[in-house]
C-alpha cells in the first residue's frame, strides 16, 4: 500500500537535505493569492459594500473585536493586520489540499498543504513567539517582563509577608547550594564539557539569587526563584505545542484520508472524508492557531 506522500518527508529540511518542493510552491501560491486579494478588494472601496467587500469586512471586523477586547484598544488595533494575515495564511495553506492537482501536466508537485510540513508551522510559531515577547517587553518594560518569570511572588507590605519572605529566601539560598553540590557530585562521572556547562549554569543561578535578594529588598517583593526555570520551560512548552498542534492535525487528517480511502478502495466515502478532515478540521485548527497567538499575547501583556 502506497501511503507515503510524493514529496520527501524531510524533518527540519536542513541545507543539503533538500527542500519539500510542494511546500515551497504552495506557500508562494498562497502568498500571491493573498496579495492579489488584498489589492483587488481594497481598490474600489464603497460606502455600501458589495458582496466581496462585505465578506472581508466581516472577517476584519471579527478579528478587530477579538483583538481590542483581549489586548486593549491601542495594542489591539496594531495587531489586527498581523492576526488577519496569520489567519488567512494558515487557513489557505491548510485547506489548499482539497484542490485536485489539475496542473500536473505543467509539472506542479501537487496541492499538498504547506502546513502538513513541520517547517511551515514551526516558522509561523517562531514569528508568533517573538511577537508575543517583544510586545510584552514593550508593554511592561524589560523589568516587568523579567519579573513575570518569577511569579507567583510574595508581597512584603505586611510584617507576615516580610517574615515569610525572609525565611523563604534563606531556605532558597541554602537549597541552591545544596543542589549545586548535589549536581556536581552526582554528575562527576560526566565528561569535562558537560560539567563545565552545568557548573556555569549553576553559577549563573546562584549569582542570580544573590542579585535578586538585593533587588527584592528595594522592590519590597520576594521573587519566587524556583518558579523561574519552570516558567521558562512553560513558555518554551507553549512555543512547542503551538506549531505541533496545527502540524499534527493537518498531517493527521491527510494521512487518515489516504489510509481509509485505500482500505475502502476509493468507493463512496473519500470526498466526504476529504471535506471533513481537510476543510472542516483544518478551518477549526487554523482559527485555533490564530486565537492562541492572541491569547498568548494577552496573557504576557497583562502581567
Amino acid at each position: 500500500m502506497d501511503i507515503l506522500p510524493d514529496a520527501p518527508v524531510v524533518i527540519w529540511g536542513l541545507p543539503g537535505e533538500g527542500f519539500n518542493v510542494a511546500t515551497l510552491y504552495n506557500s508562494w501560491l498562497v502568498m500571491v493569492m493573498l496579495v492579489v486579494a488584498g489589492v483587488v478588494v481594497t481598490r474600489r472601496l464603497q460606502r455600501v459594500p458589495g458582496r466581496l467587500q462585505m465578506t472581508f469586512e466581516l472577517l476584519v471586523e471579527f478579528f478587530d473585536d477579538v483583538c481590542t477586547a483581549s489586548l486593549g484598544e491601542e495594542l489591539g488595533k496594531k495587531f489586527v493586520p498581523f492576526i488577519v494575515t496569520l489567519f488567512l495564511f494558515t487557513l489557505l495553506t491548510s485547506i489548499i489540499t482539497v484542490v485536485p492537482n489539475f496542473l500536473a501536466w505543467a509539472g506542479w508537485p501537487g496541492f499538498d498543504s504547506p502546513t502538513q510540513d513541520l517547517n511551515t508551522t514551526l516558522s509561523l510559531a517562531i514569528i508568533v513567539f517573538f511577537i508575543v515577547h517583544i510586545s510584552a517587553i514593550r508593554a511592561n518594560g524589560l523589568r516587568g517582563w523579567l519579573w513575570g518569570f518569577y511569579e507567583p511572588d510574595f508581597p512584603m507590605q505586611h510584617w507576615a509577608g516580610k517574615v515569610v519572605g525572609a525565611l523563604f529566601l534563606a531556605a532558597l539560598i541554602w537549597l541552591s547550594y545544596f543542589f549545586a553540590a548535589g549536581y556536581v557530585g552526582g554528575f562527576a562521572g560526566m565528561d569535562a564539557g558537560t560539567r563545565v556547562a552545568l557548573g556555569a549554569l549553576l553559577g549563573l543561578f546562584l549569582a542570580n539569587n544573590v542579585l535578586l535578594v538585593i533587588y527584592s529588598i528595594q522592590l519590597k517583593r520576594v521573587p519566587n526563584v524556583p518558579m523561574a526555570p519552570l516558567n521558562v520551560v512553560g513558555e518554551l512548552g507553549k512555543a512547542i505545542s503551538h506549531p505541533f498542534r496545527l502540524f499534527g492535525n493537518i498531517f493527521g487528517g491527510f494521512v487518515i484520508v489516504i489510509v481509509i480511502s485505500e482500505l475502502i478502495l476509493y468507493i463512496g466515502l473519500p470526498p466526504f472524508l476529504d471535506l471533513f478532515f481537510n476543510l472542516f478540521i483544518a478551518l477549526v485548527h487554523a482559527f485555533v492557531f490564530t486565537m492562541l497567538a492572541i491569547a498568548y499575547t494577552a496573557v504576557q501583556v497583562h502581567d
Binding site: A69, S70, A298, V299, H302
Partner: peptide, 11 residues
Amino acid sequence: EAPLLTRTMLI
C-alpha cells in the same frame, strides 16, 4: 467579562 475570564482561565 469574557476577556478577563479567558485570561484567568489561561493563567
